[in-house]
Design a protein around this nucleic acid. Structure first.
Lengths: 246, 246
DNA sequence: CGGTCACTTGATCGTCTTCAATACCAGTGG
DNA sequence: CCACTGGTATTGAAGACGATCAAGTGACCG
């Protein structure tokens, strides 16, 4: 059993009576399917929870009592083999809904890589919420579809791309993170995860990740000002590499 | 554009006025969310379509006008890289719903590996159907969740398992196919797909697939009476191999 | 400082791929 | 009946990509 630091919803001074109305995650999450006037109900269904960096808040194969919505920070989702081999199936940042890939037990573990804030929804309460707000159910279906598309893309990466192509795909993905509306992906961005996390996400080893990044730098495709920061110098080249063109 | 052989719903003599009521796929598919008395509506929304083995009926990145429900046969779903590398993301057999992983365009291609019969739902009609039958939407969400669980399992396989483990996982998966209620998975079963399909599903080459199967046989774990048939002799060993235990 | 931790770099190794030849099998036509 | 054909599967030998093992670097911190 995992112990989480939960707390009643604290009313932010500026938020008035309704914390959900001012939630950073709302515009990005399934919660935007709920109309403003009903946000009170949403707030009472959610239990705000803080998770320290490095702690696990979902454990694979444990009973799935709750669903989660990430409202701050980033978590990694992963599966383990008995001997410790690990596959990270995704990174969940603000707005991400956890629990779609769930039957009675969780299909994956989740660990915070930065301090994370979550809205936790006990199973029964979410069920009720979905029953009362069909729009939210629709949104969830939409989100699930996107996840499936992403999952299939990742299968292509893991099954058929070379190490260089995987890293290029990863960098392009990261550079697009959180720039939803702009057509200009970031050219400089942070990598909140370690080399080990990147490796386990891409089905490689940390050494290969490190070497390949070094190679990209030597080839003038990127710059690495700090360990966890990247500047893209030649997007064209990286994009075509990511797409599988040489 | 792909041409499909469509036809109006033909009334099976025994089916009376309602073909959906006697559909083989119904107990396995999302259609079972629709009550008997409304099956007429379902039937009018669906367009029955026959696809010959080997023909492609969904093309990646084409506009997603329709969703499909497989009611007979099996199809492979796959993504391609520009140079022809292929990743099969799944096999869709009777009851499988295609179109969850869809935005405006299809995220994958689909090709029949045996003669396939489909119920095709034009986008607008499905939307209407979902609106009128929220239970069907719930079922779809449930199905999407299962797909996501399977996708994550496959990522673990592709990213972290050895060739032997992949084949063992694949064989165990196949032996469980279509034996939903029984606790006894089949010990003898057919593999409707070619070695090439298996390879592209597992992120390997046909040679590795062939060699590994031969090795399994030499080790007394399986028997291969015909090219596309397998008998499991040592399930315990295969199961633990599939799970990553040496 | 000494210690830890994450990352980088180098040398070697092994699994799976690649390339190539052969076997098999179903269908066709002499 | 048997040779011929095309597709599919098996088997062998050589090679490559990424893994493993090992050492070294640098940042951070008590």
């Amino acid at each position: 059993m995992i112990i989480l630091q939960s707390r009643p919803i604290v009313l932010d001074p500026r938020s008035g009576a309704d914390p959900c109305a001012h939630c950073d995650a709302r515009p990005l999450s399934v919660c935007n399917a709920i109309p403003d006037e009903d946000l009170g109900r949403l707030a009472t269904a959610a239990i705000v929870t803080e998770v320290a960096a490095g702690s696990t808040f979902i454990e694979e194969s444990e009973p799935a009592h709750s669903f989660f919505n990430v409202t701050r920070g980033t978590a990694k989702l992963f599966k383990l083999l008995p001997d410790g081999r690990r596959q990270i199936t995704g990174f969940a940042s603000v707005g991400h809904f956890l629990g779609l890939a769930v039957s009675d037990t969780y299909a994956f573990s989740a660990e915070a890589i930065e301090p994370v804030r979550l809205c936790r929804f006990p199973r029964a309460r979410l069920r009720k919420l979905l029953h009362d707000f069909p729009a939210m159910e629709q949104r969830l279906l939409e989100v699930a579809g996107n996840e499936l598309v992403a999952a299939q893309e990742q299968m292509l990466l893991l099954g058929r791309k070379t190490a260089r192509e995987r890293l290029a795909s990863f960098l392009m993905m990261q550079s697009r993170q959180g720039v939803a509306c702009q057509h200009h992906p970031r050219t400089r961005f942070a990598l909140p995860m370690t080399r080990s996390d990147i490796a386990d996400y891409l089905g490689l080893t940390i050494e290969t990740v490190s070497r390949t990044l070094t190679k990209f730098r030597a080839e003038g495709m990127i710059e690495i000002p700090g360990q966890s920061e990247v500047i893209v110098l030649n997007r064209r080249a990286l994009e075509s590499l990511a797409g599988g063109l040489a």
